[in-house]
């Protein structure tokens, strides 16, 4: 097995272009487990830990640009104000040791439907910045990034550079059901983000379909029915929950049943929207 250790982003892109089958590795919390369990035997590993650019967090033209290698612990500590939904999701990833190593970039690279960071990325309209030596930068909206179970829009010669996301202009919440109170893979998860300037509610569903996905009908329903100047209509709230549940296509597996996942999504959708709405109303009243 080749072990490639680029020290700059250019070197990393060159290595990936020359050897597209090389598997990028950063924290190793996913790749190393798969190797350990013999799930995959990569021909080459591309170690990105020395590529400093991947650890940058910057505000570019009012958009937060977060390097693919920024570990969850930094998302929690540094981005709780700007990206609260993602910070909440980061807080639920694994254990403290895992959060010190694992990154949103890794979550995107693995593209597992159960990845905790996906729902807030979807709800918050994140854009994934990928790059190749030969074709340069591509900006892929999160909603177009996930193609199938552990399949993404990333081309073999591309690496994930960063994700970009506007700082929250309204309340955001993330909620995840697991059968343990910590260190648990999602049975299903949900993220909501209010975009008051657009009078829009963003959503993200995790672990309840072959890919993370938005609840598009629920978003359209809210765009049409939500009165941004009133209290939350219980009928609208209920319908929102139903539409979020309907947006999923869950399966029965060892972690939970499809029925339960749909039910839980409806509950989480109602609760997170209520919390967000209450925060929004409180902020407006203040």
């Amino acid at each position: 097995m080749d072990f490639l250790r680029p020290t700059t982003w250019e070197e990393a892109l060159a290595a990936k272009a020359d050897q597209p089958e090389a598997v990028p590795i950063q924290g190793g919390t996913d790749v190393m487990v798969e190797i350990n369990f013999d799930v995959r035997r990569p021909v080459a590993l591309l170690d990105l830990n020395q590529v400093r650019e991947l650890h940058d967090v910057e505000l570019v033209d009012g958009v937060q640009r977060v390097g693919a290698g920024v570990p969850y612990v930094r998302v929690i500590e540094e981005l709780g104000g700007a990206l609260p939904g993602l910070a909440q999701a980061s807080r639920t990833v694994g254990s403290p040791q895992i959060r010190n190593r694992a990154s949103v970039g890794g979550n995107l690279g693995a593209a597992s439907p159960a990845g905790d960071s996906h729902p807030p990325l979807l709800a918050g309209d994140a854009v994934i910045e990928v790059e190749s030596r030969d074709r340069g930068v591509r900006l892929i909206p999160a909603a177009d990034f996930y193609l199938g179970v552990k399949r993404s829009a990333l081309e073999p010669d591309e690496l994930i550079r960063a994700f970009r996301m506007k700082p929250a202009e309204g309340p955001q919440y993330f909620s995840k059901v697991g059968t343990r109170n910590a260190m648990v893979i999602a049975v299903c998860s949900f993220a909501v983000a209010l975009h008051p300037s657009e009078r829009r509610v963003g959503t993200g569903i995790g672990s309840a379909a072959p890919t993370p996905r938005r609840a598009l009908e629920a978003e359209a329903f809210m765009a049409a029915e939500l009165d941004w100047d009133a209290r939350l209509d219980p009928a609208v709230l209920k319908r929102f929950g139903e539409l979020c549940a309907q947006a999923a296509s869950p399966i029965d597996d060892v972690r939970g049943t499809a029925d339960y996942r749909r039910h839980a999504l409806a509950v989480m959708a109602r609760r997170t929207l209520t919390w967000a709405w209450n925060d929004y109303r409180k902020a407006r009243a203040a």
């Binding site: 909440q88 807080r91 639920t92 919440y173 993330f174 909620s175 995840k176 059901v177 697991g178 109170n181 910590a182 648990v184 509950v267 989480m268 609760r271 919390w275």
Partner: peptide, 13 residues
Amino acid sequence: LPGGASQTTHGEG
């Protein structure tokens, strides 16, 4: 709360 940091409830239910 049940769910802990996974934030499934703020006390509801």
